[in-house]
Amino acid sequence: MIKSINIKLLLVLLSIVFAFDLVFIAIDRSSWRFLSKPLLLPIMIWFYFTYSKQDVFRINQWFLSGLILSFFGDVFLLFGWGFMPGLGSFLLAHICYIVYFFKIRKKNVWIWITVVLLYLGSFIYYIYPYLNEMKIPVVIYGITIATMLYFSINTRSLLLVIGAILFVLSDSVLAINMFVQHTIGKELVVMITYVLAQLMLVLGVVDVEKKNRIIQ
């Protein structure tokens, strides 16, 4: 009962902080986001610890590492100089997610490689002329997140797949917003899809833990 209340309170807290962050984006007060954005992933991590049936020492280390690295990515991206460290943090986070998905995979669904590669190729073809000196880092990141999406499909977990798709959508819009044309509307889409992606991944991981009762 107490645990159920704590879970609901954490979701309410996450919703409040998230709402403030979106408002700060909408009114173009990026400096105010230092008060909101760095809180999102710690609340998500707290939610994961609370919602999971595993004890602290059996929490999945790969997935938890991905969440922690995402937190650092969020913080770095708040600074004007922080794009490359932020990109690196999220790149490592996705590698952690890939390892976790690989460990819990059910069956390789090879046909989806074609779909994922088609999207990746189309997106890279579209954005490549705008990247200038960022071509190599962005292409590497794109390949990594596409790999993350493919391995999420192999887990046969709907929540994990939805989370991965939202993550790909968020990063795609972020790239367009940064390198093609910046608008506040796209920035809002980036943040909404990003937070929902992380939340779906947390819910998906907990669902896998509950079904398997073990950490792979």
Rank of each mutant, 00 (worst) to 15 (best):
F72W: 09
F24H: 03
F76K: 09
Y48A: 10
P129C: 07
S30I: 15
T50L: 09
V12F: 01
V75A: 08
V17K: 08
F123K: 13
G73Y: 03
L91Q: 08
V115L: 15
Q61V: 07
F123A: 07
F83S: 03
I104V: 15
F57E: 13
F18A: 02
K53H: 13
I68V: 10
G86L: 04
M44R: 00
V99G: 09
S122R: 07
D28F: 13
I27L: 06
K53T: 09
F83R: 06
F83T: 06
L40I: 15
L35E: 06
M84R: 00
F20E: 02
R105S: 14
R105W: 12
V12S: 00
L10T: 10
L69Q: 04
F90R: 05
L64C: 02
S52M: 12
F18Q: 00
L22G: 03
F63Q: 10
K107C: 02
D55V: 10
L35W: 14
I43Q: 10
L9E: 05
I104W: 01
I127P: 05
Y51Q: 12
F90H: 04
Y100Q: 15
A26D: 04
Y130E: 11
S70F: 01
G73M: 04
S89Y: 02
I25W: 04
L120G: 11
F20N: 03
P42M: 14
V99W: 06
I124C: 04
L39G: 09
W32F: 11
L117A: 15
L117K: 00
I43C: 09
I104F: 04
F20M: 01
P42E: 12
D74H: 13
S15W: 07
L131M: 12
K103M: 14
R33Y: 05
L117R: 00
L10E: 12
S70M: 07
F123I: 06
G82Q: 12
L91Y: 11
Y125C: 12
G73L: 00
F18I: 03
L11H: 01
C96N: 11
P38S: 14
L120F: 13
V23G: 00
S122F: 08
I98V: 10
S15N: 02
P38N: 14
F123N: 13
L9A: 08
R58N: 15
K107G: 03
Y97E: 06
W62M: 14
I43Y: 12
I68P: 00
F57P: 01
S65D: 05
L69W: 07
S36G: 07
Y100H: 15
I98Q: 05
G88I: 03
S65E: 05
V56L: 14
M44E: 13
F76Q: 08
V115K: 11
V109T: 12
V17G: 02
R105Q: 14
L35K: 05
S30N: 08
V115H: 13
I98K: 05
L87G: 01
W32A: 15
D55A: 04
I25Q: 01
I59M: 13
I27T: 05
S31K: 08
Y97D: 03
I45V: 15
L78T: 09
H94I: 01
L87V: 11
S31G: 01
D21R: 06
L87S: 03
L77N: 12
G66T: 03
N60F: 02
W81V: 12
M44C: 08
L40G: 06
G121W: 04
A19K: 04
